[in-house]
Design a protein around this nucleic acid. Structure first.
Lengths: 184, 184
DNA sequence: TTATAGGTAGACAGATCGGTCTACCTATAC
DNA sequence: GTATAGGTAGACCGATCTGTCTACCTATAA
C-alpha cells in the first residue's frame, strides 16, 4: 500500500469515528507515521484529502453493496439482498467496511454547508437510488419503479439512522419487513 | 429575551447550519453583540452552551410535534398528524423551527463519540418513540405497539434524511404512504 | 448614598490549527 | 555516476481557538 493510500485509509477511519473538523492533520500523520511534507505532495490541502477519502469510501461501499445485489436478477430478491447486507453491516459482519458508525456521507454532510463535499455526498446517495431504479425498471413501469426506488431508499436511510443513533441493531430487518410489502 | 436566551438561540442557529466544531465562540459573540465575559458567567464552557442549546431545541421540537399529535385521539390519526407536521417542516411552513436543515440531533451526534451529547441526542429520539408507543398502546397490544412505534420512527428518520441529504421535499408524504399501511 | 448584579470592550495566554519550508536521506533509472 | 522521485524530521509561520482577566459602565434596591 502506497503512502497515499495509507493516508486515505487512516484519514477515513479518524474522520468516520470523530468527525472531520475534530481530527487534525497532525493526528493523521502521527497515526500513519508519514511526514507532513509527504502528505502535502499528494494532497493540496486537508480538503483535497477529504475529497479523496469520500471517493475511497464511495467506491468501497458501492462495490460491496452492488456486489451483493448483482448476484440476483429478480427485483424483490435484489432489494432483499440489500437489506440483508445492511443487517450484516449494522452487526459488524462486513470486513471491508470498518465497524459500523452510521453513514459516513450523512456525517460528513452534516459538517458542511454549500460546499463541494455536500455535492459529493449527494452523488453517493443518488448512485444507490439509480441502481435501485434500474433494477426495478426491469419489472415495473417507469413511474412505479421511481416510486418504489424512493421508498426503498427512504427505508434504507431510516434503518441506518435507527441502527446508529437509535442503537437498534435489528433496524435492517425491520426495514425489510416494510420493504417487502411494496412488492405485493 | 435575556442575554442567556439570546446566546442559546444564536448558537443554535449557527450550530445547526454550520456544525458545532465549525462555529467559534467569537462568532457567536459577534452575532449576538454580547461580551465574552457575559457568556462565561452564564456558561462554564462552549460544551455547557452546547448542552443548553440541545435542551432548547429538544424542548422546542417536542412542544411543536407533540402539540400537533395531541389534537387527535385515534392512533392512526395521531401518526398522520406527525407526518403532516414533517411535511410542513421540510417545506419551511413551521415558524417555530427555523428553516429546515435536517435533524439537529443527528448532526450534532455525528460530531462526537462516546460523549455526553451523544446521550442527550439519543434521549431526544427516545422521547419521540416513547410518545408513539404510548399513543399506539391505547389501541394495540404491547408487542404490536412496540413494533409499530419502531416502524413509524424508522420511517420518520428515513424521511428526514431523504428530505435533507436527498433533497426530496416530498419525503414526508412518501413516508406516510408507507406508514398508513401499517394500520391495515 | 452606596452596594451589588450584570453588563461592555477587549487585551491576553496558551494551545492548536493548516500549511510551508529547509535539510537530509534513500532508491531506482539512465 | 548522477539525476530524479519520493521519503523523513521537524522548525516555523500566521491564524484561530477556548478561556481568563482587568477596567470600566450602568441600573436598581436597601
Amino acid at each position: 500500500m502506497t503512502k497515499r493510500d495509507e493516508l486515505i485509509k487512516t484519514a477515513f477511519e479518524l474522520f468516520y469515528l470523530n468527525g472531520v473538523h475534530s481530527v487534525g492533520i497532525n493526528q493523521i500523520l502521527a497515526e500513519t507515521g508519514v511526514a507532513k511534507k509527504t502528505l502535502y505532495t499528494h494532497f493540496a490541502s486537508k480538503e483535497a484529502l477529504l475529497e479523496a477519502v469520500i471517493a475511497y469510501r464511495d467506491e468501497r461501499f458501492r462495490t460491496w453493496i452492488f456486489g451483493l445485489m448483482d448476484q440476483y436478477s429478480e427485483a424483490e430478491t435484489i432489494v432483499k439482498a440489500m437489506f440483508d447486507g445492511l443487517d450484516d453491516w449494522f452487526n459488524d459482519r462486513v470486513d471491508s467496511l470498518m465497524s459500523f458508525q452510521g453513514c459516513f456521507f450523512v456525517k460528513v454532510n452534516a459538517e458542511f454547508v454549500q460546499h463541494r463535499v455536500n455535492d459529493l455526498c449527494f452523488e453517493h446517495k443518488q448512485a444507490i437510488v439509480n441502481y435501485l431504479l434500474s433494477a426495478l425498471s426491469a419489472e415495473y413501469g417507469e413511474d412505479r419503479a421511481r416510486t418504489m426506488a424512493d421508498q426503498v431508499a427512504l427505508l434504507k436511510e431510516g434503518a441506518i439512522t435507527q441502527a446508529y443513533l437509535g442503537k437498534d441493531r435489528q433496524a435492517a430487518i425491520k426495514a425489510w419487513h416494510m420493504a417487502k410489502t411494496l412488492f405485493r
